[in-house]
Structure formats: structure tokens, C-alpha cells
């Protein structure tokens, strides 16, 4: 589904990704871990097309297309979804309006009919249950005045409605208490299917108790320095990241 080869990206004149290689197949869950500043959030944002980053080298193939050639909206229409670390507040637009606009744009791009607000409400009702939410949340402005937990839950609700093929969760666990974490993780797990894939970007192993990955990759200084199975996350939890950074230092 996703093939990243020697991906390099900069913000301003600072190189943040310094040659990433990663392959993700349908049905898989990959965890990308690493210390602060390792580039893991940048990787997530570059995949979604964040304008603050410039890709300086390498390639990303997504379902046979050159992902880097697509505008952010085209990536979303092709099934890529980024759950933001810091979801943006949009006062003046209701959650329902925003989500229906997104849903219809994606349908339009796929040659499907747009849905009216009544049909959309029916769809929403079912998706709200996934994140254990009341419909009242949909009449509030997008993320405006939401708590940290509500914002993350809203990201998962959007994901549930838009049904991406590739979901990238950027630090979705940060700022969540244990109950919110459970709800968010349960939502993600219910959305797992053999034909979609998930990349979970996280600093801590905690989230991976709930969203169990098939593969774990450790990012340090803009490169993947170690990959392994889910047991690697536990090892990182026990030993921290320093031993891996030392390995990199020795190698270079």
C-alpha cells in the first residue's frame, strides 16, 4: 500500500527527515516511535502534505501513485487520513457541516453522489457510537473550546466517517487520560480491516497496549534506526531510547 524510499524533508533550512525507508502493506499496523525531535511527527505530516515541509529527496508510492505529487486534498480523496497531534479549531463552522463537506468532497472525487444532511445524520449516528459520543457534539464549532480529549476523539470520529485506506495517527495518545485513551483506541481497533492500514506515531508504549502493532520502528535523528515486532516497544519502554541513539552514533 505504501512504499517510502530514502525520504528526505526539511523545514526551512533544517533537514528533519534524512532518508526514511518504510513499507506498509494492507491489513498491517505499524508503530513509529522515537524521542522528541526524532522526526516522527514530521514524517506523519509530510505524508499528509503539510505545506511547512519541503521534500528534498526520495519517493513515496501509495497504491501505485506518486503520493508526493498529490495535493493534500487529493491525498485525502485517495484515502490517506492524518489524525492531527494538534487538531485545529474552526470557530463559525459546525462539526456536522465541516464533516459533511469533507465526506461529500471525497465522494465527489470518487464519482459518488453527495449525501444530503438528513442521510448524513443517519450515518453520523452510527459513527458516533464508535467513539461513545452524543449527537450534540456535532452542533458545536469544529474543535472550538473542545478539551484535549474531545479533540482527539473528534479526529477518530472524522476517521470513522471518512473511512481511509491509510490512517496515520500522530501522537493521538498525547494529552489523553486513560478513559479517553481506551475510547480512542477502541475506535481505531473497530475501524481495522484487512484492506486498510494504520501508522501509529507515538512517543510512549502505552497506546500500543490498546492498539497492538504488527511492526515497530524507531526513529532517531531523521532515520529509522531499528525495526522489529511489537516486543520492541516493550524493550523501548524498559530501556529508553538512549541505547539506540548510541548505536547510531557508533555506526556513523
Amino acid at each position: 500500500m505504501l512504499e517510502i524510499r530514502d525520504l528526505r524533508a526539511s523545514a526551512g533550512d533544517k533537514e528533519i527527515l534524512r532518508g526514511i525507508d518504510l513499507t506498509v502493506n494492507a491489513g498491517e499496523v505499524h508503530a513509529v516511535m522515537g524521542p522528541n525531535g526524532s522526526g516522527k511527527s514530521t514524517l506523519a505530516q509530510v505524508l499528509a502534505g503539510h505545506p511547512a515541509y519541503v521534500v528534498t529527496g526520495g519517493s513515496v508510492r501509495y497504491r501505485g501513485q506518486d503520493l508526493l505529487d498529490l495535493e493534500p486534498e487529493e491525498r485525502a480523496q485517495a484515502g490517506v487520513f492524518l489524525a492531527f497531534q494538534y487538531p485545529v479549531e474552526i470557530p463559525g463552522v459546525t462539526n456536522a457541516y465541516f464533516l459533511r463537506a469533507a465526506y461529500n468532497e471525497i465522494r465527489k472525487a470518487r464519482g459518488q453522489d453527495e449525501v444530503d444532511s438528513m442521510d448524513f445524520l443517519d450515518l453520523l449516528e452510527e459513527k458516533l457510537k464508535l467513539v461513545d459520543w452524543e449527537p450534540a457534539i456535532m452542533s458545536r464549532a469544529v474543535n472550538a473550546g473542545f478539551s484535549g480529549g474531545e479533540k482527539k476523539r473528534n479526529e477518530i470520529l472524522q476517521m470513522a466517517v471518512l473511512e481511509p485506506r491509510l490512517a496515520i495517527l500522530d501522537e493521538t495518545d498525547s494529552g489523553l487520560d486513560i478513559d479517553a485513551l481506551r475510547i480512542v483506541a477502541a475506535g481505531v481497533n473497530k475501524l481495522r480491516r484487512p484492506d486498510n492500514a494504520t501508522i501509529v506515531v507515538t512517543h510512549y508504549q502505552r497506546l500500543l497496549n490498546y492498539i497492538v502493532p504488527d511492526y515497530v520502528h524507531v526513529l532517531s535523528n531523521g532515520r529509522i534506526v531499528k525495526s522489529g515486532g511489537k516486543e520492541l516497544a516493550l524493550e523501548l519502554e524498559a530501556r529508553g531510547y538512549e541505547w539506540l541513539e548510541d548505536t547510531v552514533g557508533a555506526a556513523s
Partner: peptide, 13 residues
């Protein structure tokens, strides 16, 4: 710009 990217990342041109 962030709000713009947020909306575009949801498929809105």
C-alpha cells in the same frame, strides 16, 4: 494556514 491545511487534509479542495 493550519486551518487551511486541516480542511484540505480532510479532502476539501
Amino acid at each position: 494556514e493550519m486551518a487551511r491545511f486541516y480542511a484540505r487534509s480532510r479532502g476539501i479542495p
